[in-house]
Simulated assay, not measured.
Amino acid sequence: MAFHDIRFPASLSFGSLGGPERRTEIVTLANGHEERNTPWAQARRRYDAGLGLRSLDDVEVLIAFFEARQGRLHAFRWKDWADYKTCPASKQVSPLDQHIGTGDGVTRAFALAKTYRSGDWDAVRMITKPVAGSVRVAVGGAELDESVGWALDTVTGIVTFEAPPPVGAEVTFGGEFDVPVRFDTDLVQVSVANFQAGDVPQVPVIEVRE
């Protein structure tokens, strides 16, 4: 399987249904108490690309994209309109949005990540598919000029500095990102009559772990 560095048409993913999925294993004991555990450190996202189709032209675009990916074979980028940037939906991206590390005077490479907080708890999600041109980086609270003294790998989500950030300096970033996904089916069935009547095909898409 290869990763095709191309985004599924954002106009079609806009109307899709989906979001994060967790896996929780629950054992109910004889006394009625539960033991709960999860084998997943991070959530896995699922979507239905069929719900974003509004015309037969959209269907044609979907089929062309599906054929070029050879069904489930090749992964691609997906814009999750409900969660595609490092700040709240109503805010503008800032280079101070997300903490990704602290300088130790040696480390030059830092992995992009987004932290989800609720109360005293949080969950960290690795960002491996940042959108080129959207990422802003800061060290010690001071934003760095774009690509000056640092470089971003948009395929892995790794920021590499020419010189290690100073000891104790907080490294932060902000930007937009895509989800690496693949089709979760090798079959797309479309009936023109049914589609015109409002019955759209189901086209499941699932996040891939890298």
Rank of each mutant, 00 (worst) to 15 (best):
M1E: 15
F3V: 11
F3E: 07
R7W: 00
F8Y: 14
P9E: 12
A10I: 00
L12Y: 03
S13Y: 00
G15H: 07
G19L: 10
E21R: 09
T24Q: 00
E25N: 11
A30W: 12
N31S: 14
N31D: 15
G32C: 12
H33F: 10
E35A: 09
N37F: 03
P39Q: 10
W40D: 13
A43T: 13
R44K: 11
Y47G: 01
A49C: 11
A49L: 11
A49D: 10
L51G: 03
L53N: 08
R54M: 11
R54N: 14
S55T: 15
L56I: 06
D57A: 11
V59Q: 09
E60V: 00
L62H: 10
L62F: 10
I63Q: 09
I63R: 09
F65C: 03
F65P: 02
G71R: 09
R72V: 13
R72Q: 15
H74K: 05
A82K: 12
D83K: 11
T86C: 08
S94L: 02
S94K: 02
S94H: 01
S94A: 02
P95N: 05
P95I: 05
D97S: 01
D97Q: 03
I100V: 07
T102R: 08
D104Q: 01
R108A: 01
A111H: 11
K114S: 05
Y116W: 05
G119W: 11
G119E: 13
D120M: 02
W121E: 14
D122A: 01
V124N: 04
V124G: 04
V131F: 03
A132P: 00
G133K: 01
V135A: 08
R136C: 06
A138C: 07
A138S: 15
V139Y: 01
V139Q: 01
V139K: 00
V139N: 00
G140I: 04
G141A: 04
E143N: 03
E143Q: 13
E146N: 10
S147E: 12
S147G: 00
V148P: 07
G149H: 06
G149Q: 07
D153C: 08
T154I: 12
T154Y: 09
F161A: 06
E162D: 15
P165G: 03
G168Y: 04
A169S: 11
T172L: 04
T172H: 06
F173S: 00
E176G: 08
V179W: 14
V181C: 15
V181Y: 12
F183H: 12
D184S: 14
D184A: 15
T185E: 09
V188C: 10
A193Y: 00
G198T: 06
G198M: 03
V200E: 12
P201V: 13
P201D: 14
P204F: 10
P204D: 05
P204N: 06
I206G: 03
E207T: 06
E207K: 06
R209V: 15
R209A: 14
R209P: 00
E210D: 12
E210H: 12
